[in-house]
Every structure is written in C-alpha cells, then in structure tokens.
Amino acid sequence: MRVMLNGEPSEIKDSSTVADLLDSLAIGRERVAVEVNLDIVPKAMYDTHLLSDGDKIEVVHFVGGG
C-alpha cells in the first residue's frame, strides 16, 4: 500500500503495524515519536496500530538545536 512517510510517497507492506514499519526501517522505537494523520500513536500502541493505504505518517526524533 502507498502512504506518505515523512512527506515522501512510500510503498509499505499491507496490514503493517507502526512497529512493523519502524522495524523495517531499523528505527528504534524508544527515541522516536510517530504521528498518523496528525494523531500521535502512543508507544504502547505501536504493535497494534494498523496502518492504512493513504495514511500520512510522520516519524520524528531529537536533533541538535537551541
């Protein structure tokens, strides 16, 4: 299915959960936050939150800043 991932159109496996997506990208779940269609997905929901075709997904983390 196609989703928007951090502003880029991306192809991901059907019926992926947030956890599946992070695993496939080798992103550790502890240090990120995930938003799907402007709603934050709590870490406790990563294993159960199913992504859908057309979802707008943001995966953010901390970078250097003032």
């Binding site: 880029e8 990208l25 240090r31 990120v32 995966v59 983390h61 901390f62 800043g65 003032g66």
Partner: peptide, 19 residues
C-alpha cells in the same frame, strides 16, 4: 539542554543519533 524535533531521515539511516 535543548534539542529540536525533526523528521527522521528515512532514506539515510547511517547517520548517528544525537541521543
């Protein structure tokens, strides 16, 4: 200490993380 919140670079995962 202050930090900024930015998108994870999906295409290049080689970069080290601030944390």
């Amino acid at each position: 200490i202050t930090v900024a919140v930015r998108r994870v670079n999906i295409s290049d995962r080689s970069k080290e993380s601030l944390l």
